[in-house]
């Protein structure tokens, strides 16, 4: 509670305070956030110097500078491009198929009560179950390689898209539907003028979630059921105790995931100019 009061007090004081103080108020979140990250990296970097480690433990340990070096080498020699390309292919095909299937199905279920009631148990079941559980089955069906990866990515990305599209369609304001109907609009006009524009922000949020799930799908599928791809590089590295390579791979996946979701967020902000504030995610 002391914190809360202090907060208001500082805000009030800041109006009168020197510009430097006000600038700090504005930069504080960024500065502290960056400080948190840098602090963690520093502690990690110097941990081997601070804490005595057994030789066995050292084998599993790596520091940020090593990881950065490995990452640099992977890009400098170009050794990352081939496996990354394989992973990206599976990701793109799987996500693309999920969008192609998820959006129309979501709109359909959102507009039809009967279909919705019939599909509901399946969607609930598949959404609650980690799709990873199907991996051994998919490997059996599609074999090691691209298509079992695509299948797991598809299954992972489908449901956030489907469910968010559905929610967006459902959420369409009854009043607005009545308004356009009163001007003589048919089902198609209602979809075009009210349902789809209303659902778009939901769909974009779904896409953001789907990207995260799809990356996850690529990673786990490559751990267990592939012969090449960045995930495969990581598992091999782990079994050879090249811990820095594992972290380098993680960082590549994480950065790609963050960049893609960031791009989607940009689109989201652009498209939501008409909204007073953000819509919430899942």
């Amino acid at each position: 509670m002391a914190e809360l009061q202090a907060d208001f007090a500082v805000t009030a004081a800041a109006d009168a305070a020197a510009p430097a103080r006000r600038l700090w108020r504005r930069l504080e979140p960024t500065a502290l956030g960056a400080g948190g990250i840098v602090g963690l990296l520093l502690v990690w970097q110097f941990l081997p110097d601070l804490v005595p480690m057994k030789a066995g433990t050292k084998l599993f340990f790596t520091v940020p500078s090593d990881i950065a070096g490995t990452l640099w080498r992977m890009f400098a020699t170009g050794s990352i491009w081939a496996p990354l390309g394989v992973s990206a292919g599976a990701f793109a095909i799987g996500l693309g198929l999920a969008i192609l299937a998820g959006l129309p199905l979501g709109i359909l279920l959102g507009r039809s009560n009967v279909l919705n009631a019939m599909f509901d148990p399946f969607i609930t079941a598949f959404n609650a179950t980690p799709r990873l559980v199907f991996l051994p089955l998919l490997l059996l069906w599609f074999g090691l390689g691209l298509w079992s990866k695509v299948a797991i990515v598809f299954l992972g990305a489908l449901f956030p898209l489907l469910i968010n599209t559905y929610e967006g369609v459902r959420n369409a304001d009854k009043l607005l539907i009545n308004v356009v109907r009163s001007f003589g609009a048919g089902e198609w006009d209602i979809a075009r003028l009210v349902v789809v524009p209303n659902a778009l922000p939901f769909i974009i949020v779904g896409l953001r979630l789907a990207i995260g799930r799809a990356v996850l799908g690529v990673v786990v599928a490559e751990f267990f059921g592939a012969q090449d791809g960045l995930g495969v590089v990581m598992v091999r590295a782990a079994s050879e105790f090249k811990v820095d390579v594992v972290f380098a791979g993680l960082i590549v996946f994480a950065v790609l995931s963050l960049v893609m979701t960031g791009l989607v967020k940009l689109i989201e902000d652009r498209m939501s100019r008409w909204r007073p504030q953000q819509v919430s995610g899942d």
């Binding site: 990673v219 993680l250 995931s257």
Partner: peptide, 9 residues
């Protein structure tokens, strides 16, 4: 946001 599962191995 990062696929932490990647650290599983």
């Amino acid at each position: 946001a990062s696929p932490l599962v990647a650290l599983a191995p």
